[in-house]
Design a protein around this nucleic acid. Structure first.
Lengths: 286, 286
DNA sequence: CAATGAAATTTCAAAAATGCATCATTTATT
DNA sequence: AATAAATGATGCATTTTTGAAATTTCATTG
């Protein structure tokens, strides 16, 4: 197996590609399956490029012909399609194509996750957050950075966004302020703690709306959450991939901003002004 | 002031650029000051491109001539250096295809970011981190969650990973422990603070290796960082997209884990065991 | 096993891109 | 102020890129 993978080859050759070839390259990087599934003619059409260009493209990549490339891709797909043991002692040398694999994996996680989301559930989640008086963001352990991230987005458009756990404060005392008019965004990617479960249960019990963002290995259910949103988090190497959760959180927050409308925009603007007045560095400058 | 900034124009036109023009584009994105400081002839030489190409490049970008572009850049630099309103009021309606758009945007950010990364720089970054005695992760403001995230990954494979800012501790006192044998991962996505710049400068000065992870609007340079890694962060709506930075951080850390080899694996395993013993995990279960 | 037809490749001429050389303008020097 | 030097724009010749059409390949069928 000295043959490089498609994505690897593309990345290696990227700087030498012409404009139209780059169209093809981007398309294939975003969805490597295209090579396996589609014909060269289709691919050309999709990229808005002539068939001639497609043929030349694959030759430049080092394949003798398109068909050859497709054949190789197919056999690869069939052969060792699942090099997927996350915790396996990684044998792969930290060479170049590693990056291509990582990219392909994250793109796939992203696409598959979003595809699988049900729009009515999303709508309900956004609705809940929009109507909530207070927002709670919960993330223990590995989810703590994610929670922090989510809160950073939310606090720009909502006035009262609380985080759990926080500082070194005792969780129950903080949590006691929860009300039926509140909504909670609970993050449960990867390892879940008992505290998470407890809090979610209590929140549901208190009458607050609970949105649970988790991975595919998780149960969910009406006793812990009103809406459960699942993301793919499969990682290639030692770590899970959080590209999909992060993207989803960002989406949720911007959808929420749009729903809130003027209120949110004003708040954003206000915050912006404060930053300016305080003389934080301008964007771009270092 | 309805004129877009140079970086913005480049990004907008990026797909229409030819090969040589992209050389110029990449150069200018990495260091926008070039336009202000250098002559078109120098710029051409540096990009390995003829002067004619440079002239035409600026015309394609919408400037009448190179001189005009330079003039505008200079006045921007002097005047109110912030022509870039991050909080542009989003007019788009919260329709359905929104999600698809969001996804497409994030995927593109991901792919384009990875394409643009230079593998030798990546290698250097990983090398630095691997050899470092202590690792420092720096992230102010919006970058704080990202820093937290990075640290969460790193602490599983390296014994001494410090974060700045932390808790409510005074930064200089913490930072004082830095040594020439250390490495620093500095995060500068979006708004950069003075503190960030100061810390990076001091770190470089102290002899530590500094890796700067930022967006495309940023300058970078040897006085603040040894390696600068750029990500696309364009967002569709009110927020920037951090899919690419998150993905890159994950990649860096797993590459680092691989490079460290057994040491890292052992540590991971050890942590896993502790989690098990403490019984705080309910894998999959909630 | 030839005929068939869809699909991929190659050919070739048009279009685009690029660099060289030249020209116009600005800037520096005496 | 006159002249030299430098810089950027532009015309033109050459090279590269590109798509339409012709040709070839290849699997399938009669």
């Amino acid at each position: 197996m000295d043959e490089a993978t498609l994505s690897q080859r593309i990345l290696d050759a990227y700087d030498d590609l012409t404009r139209r070839e780059r169209n093809l390259a981007d398309l294939l990087l975003e969805d490597p399956d295209t090579l396996v599934l589609k014909s060269a003619t289709d691919l050309s059409a999709q990229a808005g490029v002539s068939k001639a260009t497609t043929a030349r493209f694959f030759q430049r990549l080092g394949y003798p012909t398109y068909k050859t490339a497709q054949k190789i891709a197919r056999s690869d797909e069939a052969g060792g399609a699942a090099p997927k043991l996350p915790a396996r002692a990684a044998q792969r040398k930290a060479g170049r194509g590693d990056l291509a694999e990582h990219l392909a994996n994250d793109v796939q996680n992203l696409v598959r996750s979003i595809e699988a989301l049900r729009s009515d559930e999303l709508a309900r989640a956004i609705q809940s957050m929009a109507h909530a008086e207070k927002l709670w963001v919960v993330g223990f352990g590995d989810n703590y950075p994610l929670a922090h991230f989510a809160r950073a987005l939310l606090i720009r458009i909502k006035a009262d966004v609380r985080m759990i756990p926080i500082g070194g404060f005792s969780v129950p005392e903080e949590f006691a302020s929860i009300q039926p008019t509140d909504a909670m965004l609970a993050l449960g990617i990867g390892r879940k703690t008992r505290s998470l479960r407890s809090i979610m249960r209590s929140a549901v019990h208190s009458g607050a709306q609970v949105i649970y963002l988790t991975d595919q290995a998780s149960r969910g259910g009406p006793d812990v959450a009103h809406v459960t949103l699942r993301c793919r988090t499969r990682g290639i190497s030692v770590y899970e991939s959080v590209a999909a959760p992060v993207s989803l959180i960002t989406y949720l927050c911007s959808a929420l901003a749009l729903k809130l409308g003027a209120t949110a925009i004003d708040r954003l603007q206000f915050i912006e002004n404060i930053h300016d007045e305080w003389g934080d560095l301008v964007p771009g400058d270092l």
